[in-house]
Design a protein around this nucleic acid. Structure first.
Length: 594
RNA sequence: CGGGGCGUAGCGUAGUGGCUAGCGCGCCUGCUUUGGGAGCAGGAGAUCGGGAGUUCGAAUCUCCCCGCCCCGACCA
């Protein structure tokens, strides 16, 4: 493109930048970060879940990466770099070659040997440390890398938010004992807080399930956003992923003085709603205060498939006004997989009557031998309307601890505001969605054990090392920043990650403007402030302003009609403030904004 | 993997059996214009996702395949 500048050097010129902004939102982008990053020319989709970084995008990615790297180094962690393409054997040793399932990209080399594209690198880090270290004196140690990861996601979505190829910073800590692990964990936690502060990502730290990696203590860094895939709860006492919360069990009640259970005809009441309506309309069942779904006990059947392929059936008893939260259930039964209980499955259990299943037919000691677990609200002395195991019949006043005894508890009902929790302590005051940008957890000895990573302790004994594992989604963080910092006009990069410090718009075709703009750019460069200069010829100012707002560099300087009076305009993309500044004072003004 | 939707030029789209596939943006040439996505004139750009079929005739109907997006189950 023609430039109004001749033979001058500024950092980036719009006339030359490999960039094409789009006026309209791409049809396939739903979330703001995705749509804006494409429209503003930061990214192009190259494959399902794979994106090409264009010059502007790469500048942001590099800044984000550098902030992560700096904070890791400051914390005393050392950077290494593994191949993404790895042989099968180490993953076989930890059983993850099979355990990781279809999300693992597997491939073969020309000789037919199995390889994988690493989804995480626990095995390699463990083996590396084993290779070089063998004494307690070498510990503690934390290593990290910033690496491209591969996961064959069933459903890549929302641009950078969930890709099949993405960049992750993963760290691993190695300690002699549990106390050391706690210290290493805390160091990572502190470093992560600094990273997210510098990235200007709004986040909450929530208790988490450690999930597929195994291990115990675990927290997630969630960036609150409607586009997020995780749900978390906040209580007076803290925050947790819904998968990790624990509902406070109800107080048990004395069972003496409770009326005996009675079976009643309740025709056509296979759903809780129908049952409650029937109870409130039937003369003999009516009571002064209306029956509600919470008075009923709903028994839900699920089929569980274990890793070796064997299946079992689980019955879950929850108050009728609640639903089983599939995410919580999946987390609770992990590593078993939950599948629906079908009509064919029903056929195998003649004692179960669909729509009228009651506790009598459930439990490992019953005829069905189906394990029966109940919600923590279903405790001894609570009385329920529930199925009588006969079509069109329910039993009223069935008392837990007197009339039935389940095999145990399971806490998988949906969570609501006001629910009392043990973890995190207190009443739920907020339920929100978040994007997981970081996850830290105490892995323990799973990998060290499997790969035989031991060191000699002070007494000359072999001791298995204990590990922590810590991740930051680097490319995801870019999307999160875009998600959290934009308005209807476009992106608004925090100054720590902006692709350039100043967007200098030449608003006019007078050559004097171009010369002055160039001088300003040089002055800014001299102060280590990078400049993207819009030197395009034949492009109307409206287009230039709109592009500047879309691209989202936080400080926009306009040199145009007021140049004759020795003034330029400084716009703050965050506050919307517009100031006229003397040319001689521009650098000071820009520095002040930074 | 289940459910839903979609695939027409770089982007956004019209076109549900009939002529040379239309429009807006973007792109190229010329002139004009220059503080909020300019105007006029001319132009380039499409295997209508792919394959097979039905038909005198297919972007349009049928089948198969591929790809994309959304919702659900997994994760940084």
């Amino acid at each position: 493109m023609k430039s109004i500048l001749k033979g001058v050097s500024v950092q980036y010129r719009m006339s030359e930048l490999f960039l094409r902004t789009l006026r309209e939102n791409p049809a396939d982008a739903e979330v703001a970060s995705h749509s804006l990053l494409i429209r503003a020319g930061y990214l192009r989709r190259a494959a399902s879940g794979g994106y090409t970084w264009l010059p502007l995008g790469l500048m942001v990615l590099q800044k984000v990466t550098e902030i992560v790297r700096e904070e890791m180094n400051k914390a005393g962690f050392q950077e290494v770099h593994f191949p993404a393409l790895l042989p099968r054997e180490p993953y076989e040793a930890t059983n993850r070659w099979t355990e990781y399932g279809p999300a693992l990209f597997r491939l073969q080399d020309r000789r037919g040997a199995d390889y994988l594209l690493a989804p995480t690198h626990e095995e390699m880090f463990t083996l590396l440390v084993k290779d070089l270290y063998s004494s307690y004196k070498d510990l503690p140690l934390s290593l990290y890398q910033i690496q491209t990861k591969y996961r064959d996601e069933a459903r890549p979505r929302a641009g950078l938010l969930r890709g099949r190829e993405f960049i992750m910073k993963d760290s691993y800590s190695f300690d002699l004992d549990d106390e050391g692990l706690v210290v290493s964990y805390q160091k990572h936690r502190d470093a992560y807080q600094k990273v997210f502060e510098r990235l200007v990502i709004d986040y909450v730290i929530v208790s988490a399930q450690s999930g597929a990696m195994g291990g115990s203590a675990s927290e997630e860094f969630l960036a609150p956003a409607d586009a997020g895939e995780d749900t978390y709860v906040e209580t007076e006492g803290g925050a947790a992923n819904v998968e990790a919360i624990q509902i406070k069990p109800a107080q048990s009640i004395s069972i003496t003085d409770l009326p005996a259970a009675q079976v009643h005809d309740t025709p056509d009441t296979a759903t809780i709603e129908a049952l409650v309506n029937f109870c409130n309309q039937n003369e003999s069942l009516k009571r002064s205060n209306q029956w509600t779904a919470a008075d009923t006990l709903k028994n839900v059947l699920m089929r569980l498939v274990s890793q070796d392929g064997t299946t079992s059936v689980l019955a879950i008893g929850i108050p009728g006004d609640r639903e089983v939260d599939m995410r919580r259930l999946e987390a609770a039964v992990y590593p078993e997989i939950v599948t629906p209980f079908t009509d064919e499955d029903f056929a195998k259990y003649p004692t179960l009557v669909k729509g009228y299943i009651g506790p009598d037919a459930l439990g490992i000691k019953s005829k069905s031998k189906i394990e029966y677990l109940v919600d923590p609200r279903v405790v001894s002395g609570t009385s329920w309307i529930t199925g009588a195991n006969r079509t069109g019949k329910h039993v009223f006043g069935l008392v837990m601890g007197r009339d039935f005894n389940p095999d145990g508890q399971i806490d998988v009902a949906d969570v609501r505001i006001g629910d009392e929790c043990v973890v995190p302590a207190g009443k739920v005051i907020r339920l929100a969605r978040g994007i997981e940008v970081g996850h830290i957890f105490q892995l323990g000895r799973k990998y060290a054990q499997a790969l035989d990573l031991k060191v000699l302790n002070e007494n000359g004994e072999q001791v298995v090392v204990t590990m922590g594992s810590y991740g930051i989604g680097v490319t995801r963080a870019v999307a999160v920043i875009a998600e959290q910092h934009h308005d209807e006009r476009g992106l608004r990069w925090p100054r720590t990650v902006t692709p350039a410090d100043v967007h200098l718009v030449i608003a006019g075709k007078d050559e004097a403007l171009a010369i002055a703009a160039n001088q300003l750019a040089d002055q800014l460069n001299a102060q280590r402030l990078s400049v993207l200069i819009d030197d395009r010829v034949g492009v109307s100012v409206g287009v230039k302003f709109n592009d500047a707002e879309l691209i989202g560099i936080p400080t926009v300087v306009v040199i145009g009609k007021k140049y004759a009076e020795g003034l330029v305009e400084v716009r703050d993309r965050f506050t919307g403030a517009v100031d006229d500044v003397l040319l001689s004072e521009l650098v000071a003004k820009v520095k002040q904004l930074h």
